[in-house]
Nucleic acid binder design. Structure first.
Lengths: 189, 189
DNA sequence: ATTATCTATAGATCTATAGATAATGC
DNA sequence: ATTATCTATAGATCTATAGATAATGC
């Protein structure tokens, strides 16, 4: 059942997309190659024609997710009508990020500390990209002050979503998001 | 090779202790029952005389770690010579928390979102305990303001450590800790 | 006699590979 | 002829259990 070269590329892209969603939902160890392929509408054995190993897929899928996150942040900043930081906070500190398809950092960062160097690099690089996006829109008299502010702001944003996600009580989760939102609103440029 | 009742209780405690350390280091899925027992100096099969299942062990070990964390925070607050929040920030936003034996929340929270309800409860309860500890030592005119400040402060503290842990570059990791420390120092009571 | 631990193994699951199959593209 | 996918399976790993062993404690 060979498919065309074009269809082959399509299949690869679909595997990456499906894997990104499943890894975020279940973690890297929570989903196997066979189930990822089934979700992509292919068979287990076909996987190794597309990727060298599961770890390799995890790296590539992570890179895609990390790049998408940065592009989305930049887009929100560029198209914000009012204060860009406020727009970003509204986007990030929302209930949408408490679902299974949440921010890749809010769902997978801790596992990354236990993975190989390649994956760790993808995540570390993605985080510094987000710091750069933030450094342009927070207050601060000097570039150093803005960078420090950006680092602290990113920590607070992701911490709030990560903690909110471990709360069973939706009201408590909302409290974490709201309190952090209010605190960070005062740091806009 | 039966052991005394006293030794039995000792063995159970050691399994819990060893499991707590290994779960934090490798994650719940990163270590098996056999290796935990080996690290405790016992055999694989003996495990099921002490615990019903691996999940049950994970719950009990988590409860112990969560309680220990709260007690440690409370102790630091109670014995602080200067400002208690400053003492807590110094303790938490330190390199020690970037090692494998870090804060249980900084190393395992994200996995907990994918575990059973029992474990989620243990973590959620532990986090609200830490919020209560913080609410007594942060600034705010009303109890509501102090609680909101405590929620935002906890998010920032844990976010900083979690992000610092994913950085390969030690200098970048330190930057996250230092920037967050400086930002939060202004919220003391 | 009771019971904590040990040895051995069943049963499930997961990654990766080998070889067959069938459609593409020179 | 080449190659993308499929079927089938090897090999490793992990949880949990069954039955044997040997020390405790009534």
């Amino acid at each position: 059942m060979r498919v065309s070269r074009e269809k082959f590329a399509e299949n690869r892209a679909r595997i990456l997309d499906v894997a990104g969603a499943l890894f975020r939902e279940k973690g890297f160890d929570g989903i196997g190659v066979a189930d990822i392929m089934k979700a992509a509408g292919l068979t287990h054995g076909g996987f190794y024609g597309h990727f060298e190993s599961k770890e390799s897929l995890a790296c590539e899928a992570s890179k895609v997710l990390v790049e998408k996150a940065r592009d989305r942040w930049q887009e929100i900043v560029d198209t914000a009508e009012g204060d860009p930081l406020e727009a970003l906070l509204r986007h990030y500190l929302s209930r949408r990020n408490l679902q299974s398809q949440a921010c890749v950092f809010a769902s997978l960062t801790q596992e990354v500390s236990r993975q190989g160097a390649r994956m760790q690099s993808a995540f570390a690089g993605g985080l510094t990209d987000l710091v750069d996006v933030l450094a342009d829109i927070v207050v601060g008299d000097t570039p150093q002050a803005r960078r420090a502010n950006a680092l602290a702001t990113l920590s607070a944003m992701m911490g709030a979503v990560i903690l909110a996600r471990t709360m069973e009580d939706a009201n408590l989760a909302d409290e974490f998001l709201a309190a952090t939102h209010r605190q960070l609103s005062r740091r806009a440029a």
